[in-house]
């Protein structure tokens, strides 16, 4: 009677994985990544806009009767949002909070409200006072550019297809209105 071959398995045996090739690859990869790493990531302000938004901006620029939104920044009083439409002017004020800083959540809410009432407007004219620091200007531009909430979007009409779509952009085009005032 033939005996069945039984392979001996030693369950207590150990083996060493050869990590040398893996290490060799890593040693080559690390210098390559070190050279191409950006430890301080920098961006620029001038957002690339979706095509429908660009068309809407062009349409607004061609329409002299479109509402105009001006934003005045003042270190003492805060922000004044001035909406001019059909010769009528409406002013909204966003004051400073208890830490004497601009109340950014309130400002964002005001921008959203203005955008909801004037969805065709994409440009604002920003006029900061001479003593307003650069970081405050950038923060206001951030608040105006895009809606922070994914739930709140604004209607925009695609001029080519005629269909209505939505965008999170509020006022992506910001112009320094008092640049040439002197």
């Amino acid at each position: 009677m033939a005996r069945r071959f039984k392979m001996k398995i030693n369950h207590n045996s150990e083996f060493d994985l050869d990590l040398a090739p893996l290490l060799a690859v890593m040693v080559k990869l690390v210098p390559v990544l070190l050279v191409s790493s950006a430890f301080v990531q920098m961006m620029i302000i001038e957002t690339e806009l979706p095509q429908v938004v660009q068309q809407a901006i062009a349409k607004q620029e061609n329409n002299p009767k479109a509402a105009q939104v001006a934003v005045e920044m003042n270190k003492k009083d805060g922000i004044r949002i001035i909406v001019t439409e059909n010769g009528q002017t409406k002013v909204e004020l966003v004051g400073l909070n208890s830490e004497k800083q601009i109340d950014m959540p309130a400002l964002h809410a005001k921008f959203q409200a203005v955008k909801k009432s004037h969805p065709e407007v994409f440009k604002i004219e920003l006029s900061p006072d001479a003593d307003v620091p650069y970081k405050e200007i950038v923060r206001v531009m951030d608040e105006a550019r895009k809606s922070r909430s994914n739930d709140i979007k604004f209607p925009v009409k695609n001029e080519q297809t005629g269909q209505e779509t939505s965008t999170e952009y509020m006022f992506p085009e910001i112009v320094f209105a008092n640049l040439m005032d002197g």
Binding site: V40, M42, M43, I44, I45, E46, T47, Y134, V138, K146
Partner: peptide, 16 residues
Amino acid sequence: PVSGVRLPASNTDKNP
């Protein structure tokens, strides 16, 4: 980065 310049932070997503 330029030495001595502390750039402001922003949520813009446009590459340089």
